[in-house]
């Protein structure tokens, strides 16, 4: 047993890794073998075999903590007393909360739309060109950089230095402004535009994801559709508008949804770049601050529940798409 828990040498670690994967494969194989009785087993048992392990993990790892969070949001800061809706009242009556909510909405609307839009246009433009591989790698690159790295990268874009003799700009944007004969700007200081500068960072990171998925979807468009359109004299922007976009609609929904949810949860960018100051905070950042900096578990839980609520419109939209898809099928 100890062999499975304490791995300290490289060989041991790698062996453990291989054993873990094999063990996992064996368990899954056994489950599938057990349910694989064509035509005699009711569907739900087969489904249980396919879904069981996933649902079990999700129940323990996500559903239970989520329910516990909802419960905790009705309790006091250390979870000892039931306080009803007090935490929610606190959230909604805090002066700065309106700003936080507006910022969050800005993030959740702008990031998915712009990311998906840019990813789509870019994927379409470089599709089947000579430079496709390189062009995609460049936009994908930010995905491979950790949040810490991204924070440093953008620091060297937004950093402000005064326009004085002997002082050099070290932020790229301000250098450009100075070269154009303008005053350097405090990009991260001045609300509300600072929120947009932070949103740019998130778009920069996520565009690679959107591009990859959408590019694949574009490639899956049956050629005969494209050919038929071409024979009808459709080309350029019209082709994009009337053939490409409608054809990859499901992929667009998936990308929009995924990016929106990721955006809702993201707080690293705000935390590392402004610390949530200067009117840039978002709900996820407030949640983190309350739960892990000020240890107000109740209030933190209430903010997390607010995130759950904010995702409902996204879910509703997906349910609708799912229904539409079922009908077509």
């Amino acid at each position: 047993m100890q062999w499975f828990l304490d791995a300290s040498t490289t060989g041991h670690k790698i062996a453990l890794m291989v054993v873990a994967i094999l063990l996992f494969a064996a368990v899954m194989g056994a489950i599938l073998f057990a349910v694989d009785r064509p035509r005699r087993v009711p569907n739900w048992i087969v489904a249980a075999g396919f879904l069981g392990p996933t649902l079990l993990l999700l129940l323990v790892g996500l559903v239970y903590p989520a329910l516990d969070t909802i419960r905790g949001s009705f309790y006091s800061r250390d979870g000892s007393q039931f306080v009803g809706l007090d935490n929610y009242a606190t959230v909604f009556t805090t002066d700065s909360f309106q700003t936080v909510l507006v910022n969050t909405l800005l993030w959740v609307v702008l990031v998915p739309l712009v990311t998906t839009g840019l990813g789509l246009v870019y994927a379409y433009l470089v599709d089947r060109t000579r430079f496709e591989a390189l062009a995609k790698a460049l936009v994908f690159l930010p995905m491979a950089i950790s949040m810490v790295g991204a924070g440093v990268i953008w620091k060297f874009v937004y950093e402000y230095r005064p326009d004085q003799p002997g002082v050099n700009q070290i932020g790229l944007l301000n250098q450009l402004l100075v070269m154009l004969g303008m005053e350097p700007q405090q990009f991260l200081l001045n609300a509300p535009s600072n929120t947009f500068w932070l949103i740019v960072v998130m778009i920069w990171i996520q565009a690679g994801f959107a591009m990859t998925v959408l590019s694949a979807a574009i490639k899956a468009i049956p050629d005969d559709i494209v050919e038929a359109a071409r024979l009808d004299g459709v080309g350029g922007i019209q082709m994009f508008r009337y053939v490409t976009v409608p054809s990859i609609r499901p992929a667009l929904v998936v990308v929009l949804t995924t990016v929106a949810i990721v955006t809702l949860k993201v707080f690293d960018i705000v935390r590392t770049m402004t610390g949530g100051q200067f009117g840039t905070s978002v709900v996820a950042n407030e949640f983190y601050t309350q739960a892990f900096r000020q240890f107000n578990v109740g209030l933190g839980a209430a903010l997390a529940v607010l995130l759950f609520v904010l995702v409902i419109p996204i879910i509703a939209y997906n349910v609708r798409q799912l229904r539409l898809a079922e009908e077509i099928r």
């Binding site: 790892g61 516990d68 969070t69 949640f287 983190y288 739960a291 995702v311 997906n318």
Partner: peptide, 18 residues
């Protein structure tokens, strides 16, 4: 829908239970 909605649960709330 339930499974995909679980995407919104912030990892942070799961740390202590897990």
């Amino acid at each position: 829908v339930a499974v995909f909605a679980l995407q919104v649960v912030p990892i942070q709330v799961t740390l202590i239970p897990l």
